[in-house]
Nucleic acid binder design. Structure first.
Lengths: 205, 205, 205, 205
DNA sequence: GGGTAAACGAGACGGTACGTCAAGTCTTAGG
DNA sequence: CCTAAGACTTGACGTACCGTCTCGTTTACCC
């Protein structure tokens, strides 16, 4: 409702230099973007706090003030990238929903920049249990809820039995996708996904 | 003229200081063991070349002469740990073989020191494509062959159709196990494995 | 709506928060005292603007508003400590006046907190010519005038010839004292001062 | 006499990169020179370990390996500068020796680069008692011994009584010089020194 | 008695230098 | 030739202060 106070000032030329009642949104965005860019350009080892600060045009202390570690930055950058709605489309048809979602998941994990960040963070979670817990709470749980949506909708529509263990069935569907992405490195192609879905749907009869 | 100086030293306390005709097996073993120990004790970040060299009582240069990186050491250490035969037992029964093998896999990945090394290396593979290729060739392919054994035997026995895509089916079985271990962190318990096997066997009918 | 909240507050706990027509004496004193305390407690390196502000319960900006540097604060703190009259007592006797004054000088420079500040400032003057000039004008000249007093009085009394170069003679008397304090670090004891005075008085005959 | 070992190698192009049996003399000299230069160019505040390392073309770690602090470097640099013999000339005449030595002392302290380092170190000694002790042991005591030489020679020659307290008399001669240099900043000119010597020689009669 | 502008607290900002750690390279002495 | 030892350059780490810059509050004077 307020916010009019600064209306007259040309937003583009103003630079934040700190004030008591809030941090610099400008600095925050620059850091997240820098971290994202560095990961994509140079890989995880190329992401350093110094590098982020330098590329963001921000003081190192500013980074340390707001983030605990470089992975903390990457988590926030990842979440930032995901602000757009990634709810899988509802075609009203389990078969189509499943194939669409798994295709999207494979594409997201394997081909997008955000997916690269995601993989790097899963990797880091192997090394650091504390980070793993944080990462799961902030990112993974949401992703898993999304992964369950196709089956949940089908249950709601009556396409699947009401007592179906949706979580477990979802794990059997996405597990192999993650396995290829994280472990074997083989491409997750159309055939693979079709095989998954066919086996799942076939097993229900 | 000086050679006699060390004559009196008991054999057990003598240390290898280089010889003209080959590398020191003593140094090699000490390095691998030190790397293993450090990983278990302090986690991946606690494994450093300096730390390994210091704990192994070996010069840094000796480490660099024989290994490209700390992950290279860990791969060799991992393989060393796996010299014993890990061929899954053949009960002559698909159902039992599958459950036994998946239980063992879950235990190995989640509860053993070697599994911890394995997870650390999979993590590293996310960050470094070159290492990923090397790691897959030296460790993963072998593991995947082992994973396929239960189904291959069943096919050979005629329990499963000869045209079954063993590789794909195996991925659907082990994928969810890796997913829990690497991604969600949930325990891979009896029920989960039973669910996997039941769904697989049920889907074949 | 809130204005009444502070009405009840006892005067002693009320804090100045600025006013249009003058600075806060409270803040000024707190800063000087904090600077003094920090120097004595932690030494010169332990005196930082941030530390002073924090200990004084004052904003950093308030410090920068009124003082150019930490040495500027220390100079003012030093002068504050010296408000009391340090005019050497006049016994009407050159011998007694000299010994008393030199003893006091040695004690002041070597044993008092103010002397510690003084030494720190002399030290700083070695590193910074601009500060040196300022320090001499604000502190040293006054001290030198005081140092000359015993001889000046003796000249006025006729104990010493009217054409005596009081300034030069004073330098020969206090110089060795400063030398011990600043350079050799040896204690300036009774014997040393007696030696100085004896030599001076003996040389006049 | 030795040194032949390296004869064949072009000395100028060889760079030391470390070996087990000794540090790099090249690095040592570069550091000392850099510290000296920085002090003269930018003053004490401009002397930083990072700056020294950068200008010397040496790694920061190398500096920290061999020196405790920047003052430690300056002490060594100062001693290096003083390798040449600074024994005051012996004219066989107390009057001449004294005037010559005090003139040289004033010049050295006030006009030479080494003197600037010396003053900076005396300043630092005010701030840090531990350094003060070290500095006195490594630099000052030697200087004080030199300062005593003119009187000691005169005693040996019989020009001065054998029971003269040479140390105390020397302090009375050099003290005022240091006082002007360190405290008042007034120039130490011919007249001032003549006054000192005259008073000293006059007081002996 | 209410408005108003200087001084205040708080603290975020871009920086510089600190002192530490590990990486990876190079050199030497000795078995 | 291989080893242990260790000095070297490089570069990131995380911390402490620097001096600057808002921001919103407090308060004494002046209308």
């Amino acid at each position: 409702m307020t916010g009019a106070a600064h209306t007259a000032r040309p937003e583009s030329t103003r630079r934040h230099h700190g004030n008591r009642y809030g941090r610099s949104e400008q600095a925050r965005r620059a850091v997240l973007e820098a971290a994202d860019d560095l990961l994509v350009e140079k890989g995880f080892a190329g992401v350093t706090i110094e590098g982020i600060a330098a590329r963001a045009g921000v003081a190192k202390q500013t980074v340390y003030r707001w983030w605990k570690s470089k992975t903390d930055i990457l988590v926030e950058a990842f979440l930032q990238d995901l602000t757009e709605d990634l709810t899988p489309p509802d075609h009203g048809d389990l078969d189509r929903d499943l194939r669409t979602h798994l295709r999207w998941l494979a594409f997201f994990l394997g081909r997008t920049d955000a997916g690269a960040v995601f993989r790097a963070l899963i990797a880091q979670a192997q090394h650091d249990p504390a980070f793993a817990a944080d990462f799961r709470a902030r990112c993974l749980d949401r992703q898993r809820a999304v992964d369950r949506l196709p089956l949940e909708r089908a249950v709601r529509r009556g396409e699947l039995p009401a007592d179906l263990d949706v979580a477990a069935e979802t794990e059997r569907l996405v597990g192999p996708v993650y396995y290829r992405i994280l472990v074997t490195g083989e491409p997750v192609d159309e055939d693979f996904i079709d095989g998954l879905v066919d086996a799942f749907l076939g097993g229900l009869r």
